[in-house]
Measured scan of single mutants.
Amino acid sequence: NQASVVANQLIPISTHLTLVMMRSEVVTPVGIPAEDIPRLVSMQVNRAVPLGTTLMPDMVKGYA
C-alpha cells in the first residue's frame, strides 16, 4: 500500500505548503504520493483543505 499526502491541519486557500502542514498516511482513495512531499513545499493549494483530507493533484497549483 502506497502512502499519500494528507493535510495535518486546515490549509486555507492559496496557502504555500510547508512540511508541518502535511503527513503521509495510507488512505483510500490514493492521492499525491508521500514521496512527493519535498516537491510540494512552497506550492500553493487552490482550495481550502480540511484537516485529514488527502491531497489530490488538482488541489495543488502547478503539481499536475
Rank of each mutant, 00 (worst) to 15 (best):
G62Y: 08
P33S: 09
I11H: 02
E35Q: 09
E25C: 08
A7V: 06
N8H: 06
T54Q: 03
L40K: 00
M22L: 14
K61W: 12
I37S: 03
L17N: 01
L40Y: 01
D58S: 11
V6K: 03
S4K: 01
Q44S: 12
L17V: 01
A48W: 09
P50G: 13
V5I: 12
D58L: 11
L19Y: 14
L19P: 11
I32R: 00
S24N: 08
Q9E: 13
P38Y: 13
R47Y: 08
A3E: 13
M56S: 06
L55D: 02
S42C: 14
S42D: 15
T28S: 13
V26G: 05
P50D: 10
Q9A: 11
R47L: 09
L55I: 12
S24P: 13
P33N: 10
L17S: 00
S14M: 14
V30G: 08
T54D: 02
L19F: 13
N46P: 02
I32V: 08
L10N: 15
E35F: 10
P57L: 04
M22R: 00
L55V: 06
E25N: 08
V30F: 09
L55E: 02
M43L: 11
V20P: 12
V20E: 14
L19A: 14
Q9M: 14
Q2S: 13
S24L: 05
T15K: 06
V41M: 07
I11Y: 03
L55R: 00
P12T: 09
T53S: 10
V6T: 06
N8A: 14
L17A: 00
M56C: 14
M21K: 01
R47W: 05
S14Q: 12
M22T: 00
A3C: 10
L40E: 00
P50R: 09
G31K: 00
L19Q: 07
S14G: 13
M56G: 04
V45N: 02
V6F: 00
S4Q: 01
R39A: 14
E35A: 09
V30W: 09
V6H: 02
V60T: 03
P38Q: 13
E25T: 06
R39W: 09
H16D: 08
V20R: 12
D36A: 13
P38K: 10
V6G: 00
R39L: 11
A48Q: 13
D36R: 08
I37V: 07
L51W: 09
M22F: 05
V41N: 03
K61S: 13
D36E: 13
M56N: 05
R39F: 10
A7E: 01
P38S: 12
G31T: 00
L10C: 15
T18W: 03
D58T: 10
H16T: 14
G62F: 07
T54P: 08
M59N: 05
V27E: 03
T15C: 07
A64M: 15
I32C: 05
M56W: 05
V41H: 02
N8V: 07
A34M: 08
M22G: 01
T15D: 03
R47N: 08
T18V: 06
L17G: 01
E35T: 14
Q2W: 10
G52T: 03
G62N: 13
R39N: 09
V41T: 05
P57W: 06
V26W: 07
P57H: 08
E25H: 06
P29N: 05
G31C: 03
T15P: 02
D58F: 08
T18G: 04
T18A: 11
L19W: 13
P29Q: 05
P12D: 11
T18S: 12
A48Y: 11
V27M: 07
A64E: 14
M59Q: 04
V49F: 03
M59R: 00
R23E: 04
G52K: 00
M22E: 03
T15M: 09
D58V: 10
L40T: 01
V5H: 01
T15F: 07
A48K: 13
V26A: 09
V5F: 03
M22K: 00
A34I: 06
A64G: 14
T28H: 11
A48P: 10
T15G: 06
Q2T: 13
V45K: 01
G31A: 03
P12W: 04
I13M: 11
N1H: 11
L55N: 01
L51S: 14
E25I: 05
L51E: 15
P38N: 12
N46H: 09
G31Q: 01
V60K: 02
M59E: 01
N46D: 11
I13Y: 14
H16I: 14
K61N: 13
V49Q: 02
T15R: 06
A3R: 06
H16P: 14
A64R: 12
T54E: 02
S42L: 07
A7H: 02
E25A: 12
Q9T: 14
V30P: 12
I11M: 03
V45C: 06
M43R: 11
A7C: 04
L10K: 15
P50V: 07
T28V: 10
N1R: 04
E25V: 10
V5T: 07
H16E: 11
M43C: 10
R47H: 08
V60G: 01
P50T: 10
V49N: 02
T53P: 02
S14E: 14
I32E: 01
G31H: 01
P38H: 15
V60I: 12
L17I: 14
V45W: 00
L19G: 06
N46A: 09
P29Y: 04
H16G: 07
T28D: 15
V6Y: 00
V60C: 03
L10T: 12
